[in-house]
Simulated scan of single mutants.
Amino acid sequence: MNLSQNEWWSQYLGDANAVILDVRTEDEVANGKIPGAINIDIYKGQGFVYQVDELDKTKNYYVYCAAGVRSANACGVMQQMGFEKTYNLVGGFSNWEGPTE
Protein backbone atom coordinates (compact mmCIF):
# COMPACT_ATOMS: atom_id res chain seq x y z
CA MET A 1 0.00 0.00 0.00
CA ASN A 2 1.36 3.42 -0.97
CA LEU A 3 1.23 6.03 1.78
CA SER A 4 2.18 9.70 1.80
CA GLN A 5 4.99 10.72 4.14
CA ASN A 6 2.60 11.98 6.84
CA GLU A 7 0.38 8.87 6.66
CA TRP A 8 3.38 6.53 6.61
CA TRP A 9 5.12 8.11 9.62
CA SER A 10 2.02 8.66 11.77
CA GLN A 11 0.79 5.12 11.09
CA TYR A 12 4.27 3.76 11.91
CA LEU A 13 4.42 5.70 15.18
CA GLY A 14 1.06 4.27 16.25
CA ASP A 15 1.88 0.70 15.23
CA ALA A 16 3.28 -1.50 18.02
CA ASN A 17 3.99 -4.23 15.46
CA ALA A 18 5.98 -2.05 13.04
CA VAL A 19 9.36 -2.54 11.38
CA ILE A 20 11.01 0.02 9.06
CA LEU A 21 12.79 -1.55 6.08
CA ASP A 22 15.27 0.47 4.01
CA VAL A 23 15.88 -1.20 0.62
CA ARG A 24 18.59 1.22 -0.57
CA THR A 25 22.28 0.42 -1.15
CA GLU A 26 24.85 0.62 1.66
CA ASP A 27 26.31 3.78 0.09
CA GLU A 28 22.90 5.46 0.17
CA VAL A 29 22.32 4.40 3.78
CA ALA A 30 25.73 5.83 4.75
CA ASN A 31 24.36 9.28 3.85
CA GLY A 32 21.53 9.00 6.38
CA LYS A 33 18.53 6.84 7.18
CA ILE A 34 15.27 6.85 9.11
CA PRO A 35 16.02 5.92 12.75
CA GLY A 36 15.68 2.22 13.55
CA ALA A 37 15.48 1.08 9.93
CA ILE A 38 16.76 -2.36 8.91
CA ASN A 39 18.71 -2.22 5.64
CA ILE A 40 18.29 -4.98 3.03
CA ASP A 41 19.45 -3.83 -0.43
CA ILE A 42 16.89 -4.78 -3.10
CA TYR A 43 19.64 -4.64 -5.75
CA LYS A 44 21.07 -7.82 -4.21
CA GLY A 45 18.36 -9.75 -6.10
CA GLN A 46 18.09 -13.28 -4.77
CA GLY A 47 20.11 -12.21 -1.72
CA PHE A 48 17.35 -9.70 -0.95
CA VAL A 49 14.75 -12.48 -1.18
CA TYR A 50 16.77 -14.75 1.14
CA GLN A 51 17.21 -12.01 3.76
CA VAL A 52 13.60 -10.84 3.61
CA ASP A 53 12.42 -14.45 3.95
CA GLU A 54 14.07 -14.54 7.39
CA LEU A 55 11.93 -11.62 8.62
CA ASP A 56 8.87 -12.14 10.81
CA LYS A 57 5.83 -12.23 8.48
CA THR A 58 3.49 -11.27 11.35
CA LYS A 59 5.05 -7.78 11.57
CA ASN A 60 3.94 -4.70 9.62
CA TYR A 61 6.65 -3.39 7.29
CA TYR A 62 7.15 0.27 6.47
CA VAL A 63 9.37 0.20 3.40
CA TYR A 64 11.34 3.00 1.77
CA CYS A 65 14.08 3.69 -0.77
CA ALA A 66 15.39 6.92 -2.31
CA ALA A 67 12.38 7.83 -4.46
CA GLY A 68 9.69 5.21 -3.80
CA VAL A 69 10.14 2.97 -6.86
CA ARG A 70 12.42 0.24 -5.44
CA SER A 71 10.39 0.18 -2.22
CA ALA A 72 7.16 -0.26 -4.20
CA ASN A 73 8.84 -3.21 -5.97
CA ALA A 74 10.03 -4.56 -2.61
CA CYS A 75 6.48 -4.40 -1.24
CA GLY A 76 5.28 -6.38 -4.26
CA VAL A 77 7.94 -9.06 -3.75
CA MET A 78 7.14 -9.22 -0.04
CA GLN A 79 3.41 -9.61 -0.73
CA GLN A 80 4.19 -12.57 -3.03
CA MET A 81 6.28 -14.07 -0.22
CA GLY A 82 3.38 -13.94 2.23
CA PHE A 83 3.88 -10.60 3.98
CA GLU A 84 0.38 -9.21 4.45
CA LYS A 85 1.12 -5.69 5.62
CA THR A 86 3.67 -3.66 3.66
CA TYR A 87 3.53 0.11 3.37
CA ASN A 88 5.50 2.00 0.73
CA LEU A 89 6.76 5.52 1.45
CA VAL A 90 5.74 7.61 -1.58
CA GLY A 91 8.57 9.93 -2.61
CA GLY A 92 11.12 7.98 -0.57
CA PHE A 93 14.02 9.26 1.49
CA SER A 94 14.84 12.03 -1.00
CA ASN A 95 11.62 13.81 0.04
CA TRP A 96 11.77 12.74 3.71
CA GLU A 97 11.22 15.54 6.22
CA GLY A 98 11.12 13.39 9.36
CA PRO A 99 13.93 12.39 11.71
CA THR A 100 17.16 10.91 10.34
CA GLU A 101 20.31 9.38 11.77
Rank of each mutant, 00 (worst) to 15 (best):
S10K: 11
Y62W: 03
E97P: 03
F93Y: 15
L3D: 03
S4W: 07
D15I: 12
Q51C: 08
Y87T: 11
C75H: 02
R70N: 07
A30Q: 14
L13W: 01
Q79L: 09
L55M: 09
T58C: 03
T86V: 01
W8V: 05
C75L: 06
T25L: 14
N88G: 05
G91E: 09
G82P: 14
T58Y: 01
K57A: 10
I20N: 01
A67T: 10
N88D: 09
E54N: 12
S10G: 05
T100K: 15
Q51D: 15
K33A: 05
Y12L: 14
G68C: 09
D22Q: 09
G91T: 09
P35E: 15
S4T: 15
N73I: 14
D53Y: 08
F93V: 09
N6E: 08
F93Q: 03
A37M: 04
V69A: 11
K44Y: 01
W8G: 08
Y62G: 10
A18S: 11
Y50D: 14
P99S: 12
A16G: 07
K57T: 11
G14D: 08
G45Y: 10
Q5I: 12
G82N: 04
K57L: 02
V77K: 04
P99K: 15
Q46A: 06
P99R: 13
D27S: 09
Y61G: 14
A18G: 09
G82Y: 02
T86A: 00
M81V: 00
V49R: 04
G36W: 05
L89V: 02
I34F: 11
A66D: 10
L89R: 00
A67E: 10
I20E: 02
I42R: 07
K59Q: 09
L13M: 09
M78N: 13
Y61K: 08
Q51L: 15
D27F: 08
Q11C: 15
V23L: 00
V19G: 04
M1V: 03
E26L: 13
N60F: 00
G92E: 02
D56T: 07
T25Y: 10
K59A: 07
A66L: 13
E28D: 10
V29Y: 15
Q46K: 06
N17I: 08
N31P: 03
D15M: 10
G36C: 05
K85N: 13
K44D: 08
K85L: 07
G82A: 08
N6H: 15
C65Y: 01
E28K: 10
S71M: 06
I20G: 02
V90Y: 11
V49Y: 02
M78R: 14
K57C: 06
I42E: 08
A66R: 10
G76Y: 05
G68D: 12
V23P: 01
L89H: 00
K44L: 11
K57V: 11
D22P: 08
I38P: 05
A37R: 01
G36N: 09
Y87G: 07
N39T: 07
G82M: 12
D56W: 03
S94P: 07
F93E: 08
A16Q: 13
A16H: 04
E54I: 11
K33Q: 12
K59F: 05
A72W: 00
I34D: 06
E26S: 10
S10Y: 03
Q79E: 14
V49N: 00
Q51P: 06
N6P: 10
D15L: 05
D22R: 05
G92L: 11
D22K: 03
L89C: 06
K57I: 05
P99C: 04
N60I: 03
V52G: 01
Q5K: 11
P35R: 12
E28P: 14
G82I: 04
